[in-house]
Amino acid sequence: MRLTLLNVIVAVVLAIAFAALNAAYLVWAERRGAARIQRRPGPNINGPFGLLQPPLDGIKLMAKQLTIPGGADKIMFITAPVLAMFPAIMSFVTIPFSDTIVAKNMSVGVLMIFAFASMGSMSLLFAGWSSRNKYSMMSSVRAVSQAVAYEIPMLITTITVVMIAGSTDLMEIVHQQSRSILHWNIFPLLGNSHNLLMPFSFLIFFICTLAETNRAPFDLGEAESELVAGFHTEYGSMGFGLFFMGEYANIVIGSCMTTILFLGGWSCPFGLFPGVWWFILKLYLLIATFIWIRWTFPRTTIYGLLNLSWKILIPLSLFNLLFTAGLIKVF
């Protein structure tokens, strides 16, 4: 297929539309899910099942004035929310949803997604610093230390999968798992690895995704009881909206990566009708787990959070890396 400007524009528009639609309707899903867990109705007035709530919220946010606090660094205050959304949309470019549905498959796909995901912490940092608010500042320091701490075990676990697959091409990684459910990277026996620790690396990866997207129980960056609303305390209107959408877009990307690296991407568990629907199913099951975890677990403390990463997850993932390397060498 020849690459034309039209293709590029269509791909970019689709990526943005997918990210934005997901962000909008995941807010709805989150609120309905929370309500269900807390035994209350949730948003159910606007439209059937409250489905019109996200567009109405969007209109409300867009109609509001963007206020910039007096002492704030104006340029960075405006740039930060854009930076929250930009890496998420860039990452959608290389995520393969099925054999054919991918904007641009790259041989360094895994690297590209982690490269742009690592830019997300810059946005939190700039937002907190430029607001000129001590709660925002503390929150951004927390959020960044958290992001740095959990990026390490996440990358090490990903390297384990990349070693097993022998490729950083996301499509190639999925193709190797596509024979049956037992060949998925999460399962140890029949797969490519024979590594008994693979379920644990899946768990480590999932915990890291939770932490990297600043989700409860790891949402120390916006701990309402301590820091007002964290780094987005001073943001109103669409500035706040962009941070919100960025968070949900990152959840989608994290779940996409978990699906691709561990759950066989678009391949079917029984070898029947592989296609994009399996990918979507796995993706939304993972996202539902995210929401479920958020509303069932209490928030940890910042020390607990950092200790979990530096004292447990990093040694475990390093051991797993060495173990996998040994197994690959032996078999």
Binding site: M106, M112, A115, S118, S121, L125, V144
Partner: peptide, 20 residues
């Protein structure tokens, strides 16, 4: 592309954050 991605991953994701 490999070096480009490493440039972003290491310099933006690690070095710039450490400097901050």
């Amino acid at each position: 592309p490999f070096v480009a991605m490493m440039q972003i991953l290491i310099y933006v994701g690690a070095v710039a954050v450490t400097i901050s």
